[in-house]
């Protein structure tokens, strides 16, 4: 039970939940860039949230299914097809042996997640199966996919195509998670006060664009340069995904999943974890504005996003329990 990579695409890797507990050794949490889409992809095929998915960037790999499989796609819209058949995102799909999954063009977003019932076979390292590219550990051989790779999946689908065709699984609330108007909420960071008054003013008003120098480590932003009243030399201190750092040239960088654990640049803001999926789906050239909120609102937003995920999970799993009591 496996798939074979016919064309490698770029940066396709096995991802899952973050790896916690090793940041003090310089090992970041990593995991899927869009943790919402990653988890929902799993729920749609009846998996737990920590099952492995394939994170695809565009151009995505071409994948031959060597066995029937129950799969789901979530996140970006890359115009995915199995043969001539379009594969809709955000719902379970039955794919037959010999089908080739291809992605035609990037319609919306930048990270597409492919889940399979039972999860993809992957190596675990330090408590997570998420690929760590720098250390070359976990996931599929610690690296991105290459042509001819064969990736196994754990279980045969215990659910048939006929069964799922009658299911009406929908994922509500997508427009709230990926709003059309790109407003990314953030809170002020520990070094917000180092920004000049003019920059503080501009921060919430300016439009920023994702630059070409953006990857799984961080998104560099372009826009009017920000400045400090008095540059302060900082000793290295912890950072996290979503931390917005002010670089010496006045540009901002938002740290993403594969960020370093520590940094020496002023942390002027922090993107809400609840808004990281929307940010993760932006492409180079896309523009957005920051909206500053208070820490208490950030905590409430995180709690509601976790509760929302839990509700989606329960809704999806009910279908699987009903049809497969064991």
């Amino acid at each position: 039970m496996s798939i074979r990579v016919l064309k490698q695409g770029i940066l396709a890797s096995v991802q899952s939940l973050p790896r916690n507990g090793y940041r003090h050794l310089g090992i970041g949490s990593g995991g899927a860039m869009d943790a919402f889409a990653m988890q929902v992809a799993n729920f749609l095929v009846g998996n737990e949230e920590d099952a492995t998915v394939i994170e695809m960037h565009f151009p995505a790999p071409e994948i031959l299914f060597l066995e029937d499989a129950l799969i789901s796609l979530a996140g970006a819209d890359f115009d995915a097809c199995a043969g001539e058949e379009p594969l809709p995102a955000w719902k379970p799909c039955f794919i037959t042996k010999g089908s080739v999954l291809k992605c035609g063009k990037p319609v919306w977003g930048s990270k597409l997640y492919l889940a399979v019932r039972g999860g993809w076979e992957a190596e675990q390292w330090l408590g997570s199966r998420s690929t760590h590219l720098k250390v070359a550990a976990a996931g599929f051989r610690g690296r991105t996919f290459q042509k001819e790779d064969v990736i196994g999946f754990a279980n045969q689908p215990a659910v048939s195509g006929k069964q799922i065709s009658g299911w009406n699984i929908t994922v509500p609330g997508l427009p709230e998670i990926y709003p059309e108007e790109n407003r990314i909420r953030c809170i002020r960071g520990p070094e917000w006060s180092l920004l000049s008054e003019i920059s503080k003013e501009a921060f919430g008003k300016e439009t920023f664009a994702i630059s070409n120098q953006s990857d799984r480590m961080g998104y560099r932003l372009t826009g009017s340069p920000m400045n400090q009243d008095q540059p302060v030399e900082m000793v290295s201190s912890p950072v996290d995904a979503g931390t917005v750092q002010l670089l010496p040239d006045g540009n901002l960088i938002v740290l993403m999943a594969d960020h370093q654990t520590t940094g020496g640049y002023p942390r002027v803001a922090s993107v809400l974890q609840a808004d990281m999926p929307a940010l993760a789906q932006l492409n180079p050239g896309n523009r957005f504005c920051f909206t500053i909120v208070e820490p208490r609102q950030a905590e409430e937003a995180l709690i509601s996003s976790k509760q929302n995920l839990q509700a989606i999970k329960e809704r999806c799993l009910r279908y699987y329990q009903k049809h497969n009591p064991h």
């Binding site: 000793v235 922090s270 809400l272 995180l302």
Partner: peptide, 15 residues
Amino acid sequence: SVLNETALLVSFGNL
């Protein structure tokens, strides 16, 4: 200080 909604930062100085 608040690093984000999942982390607090305890700072004993900048030395």
